[in-house]
Amino acid sequence: MIEKQIVPLFNTRIRKLLEQAAPDYESLQELRLRIQQPMILQQNGRERYLTDKGELCDNYQEGICITAKDIKDIVEAACGYSGYAFEEEISRGYLTIAGGHRIGLAGRAVINENGVQTLKYISALNIRIAHPIKGCGEKWKKYIYEQSGPCHVLIISPPGCGKTTLLRDFIRMFSDGDEYISGSSVGVVDERSEIAGCYRGIPSHELGMRTDVLDGCPKIWGMEMMLRSMAPKVLAVDEIGISDVPAIETALRCGCKVLATLHGKNLRDFQEKPGFASLVKEKVFERYIFLKQGQTPGMVTGIYDRNFEILWEDKACI
């Protein structure tokens, strides 16, 4: 399935080589392409290079050299040959394709009075493969529920540790419920189409039967829209920033539970994060879940309650 979503992105030259090399797409984490540099396939934390013989090797000197045309072709294909329809995404530096895979872009920014208008001379791409892992959050179920129902949960980790993967599974769990806990309606504000991986409005990932997705909408507007239009019991958002804090506070006042993720290293890092002081001081979140980079995404290092008391901790990380 992943192969069918990823391979057609490439032009004939690279597509042929990839088809010959046939990498294991299930373990593929990302593909990095930079102009005049070898194409890198990140697999299980290991870098491999695609050769002109259609093989994968460990020596970067044997890797095929990516050209400006290769990059241009990939961006055009990812946009469905319709750059105008993806102006917003390109100006934010990413594109999301069918399957929820995200293509990060780097190039020269064209600035106008409103900020970044677009990117030109795109010189590097990072194709991040989405791997939904159904059930990866089951182990932590007892920590994210209280007697009254779901808790306000904040998942914190550096990039690439599986925050979105875990968030996705928590959404599914909250939405479906189980034999002991009834399911809740969940509203997902998926600004970057990464949580649900919506393609033409249909989620590519399983988010549960009571989940509504607002796709491609900035969180700051989307959270309020969701609250007004769909009245969810749980509101889920990915990678919150300082600008989203007022919207989160509004959601909290509406009696809605918030499930969110945030970039951060550890508890201290979060507590000292500028702009989040009000959330820390008011002890808004009832559970803080920290992740680390590991063999599989979503490896939890510690779970804390609203008073930052340890509920669970990975002994190996102490």
Partner: peptide
């Protein structure tokens, strides 16, 4: 389709 939906060409 292009103006109102901002649909991509295939869509």
């Amino acid at each position: 389709e292009l103006r109102f939906h901002r649909a991509s060409l295939p869509e």
